[in-house]
Design a protein around this nucleic acid. Sequence first.
DNA 1: CGCTTGACCGGAA
DNA 2: ATTCCGGCCAAGC
Length: 127
Amino acid sequence: MNYPSPPDPQGYYEQVYEFVRQVPYGKVVTYGQIAQLIPPPLGVDPDEYKAFSPIWVGHAMAAGPSGVPWQRVINSQGKISQRPGAEQQRERLEEEGVVFVKDKVDLKKYQWKGPGHEDEPRQARLL
DNA sequence: CGCTTGACCGGAA
DNA sequence: ATTCCGGCCAAGC
């Protein structure tokens, strides 16, 4: 299978969608995280990739097909980037049980590490 | 077809 | 903690 046509950005977007679809209910991921987990297309230097790949993810979400939980993708600060529809995104997340504190969410608590990590609540033997 | 901006991020003032 | 800046790709105007 290798990689889909590298000179085709849409192939990259498909990988983004594929990942976002795996994000569990009530969990969130960041643009940079997705970019980091997806390998750069052939012919793209890692440094160059690191610079703009998060934005590519954003562009990918802009064309987000139905079935992709785009609302679970936020920025690395744990905030929702200002844009038309931002409020709606927040509402949908809160509906999933994600708690916002001063327009921010606790990434340590809600960020999904990715497939394979699943999420082990790891009951930190409270006190 | 050229110029500007971006659903971002990390590091520096 | 907050604001500014570079990055040098992709889409929109």
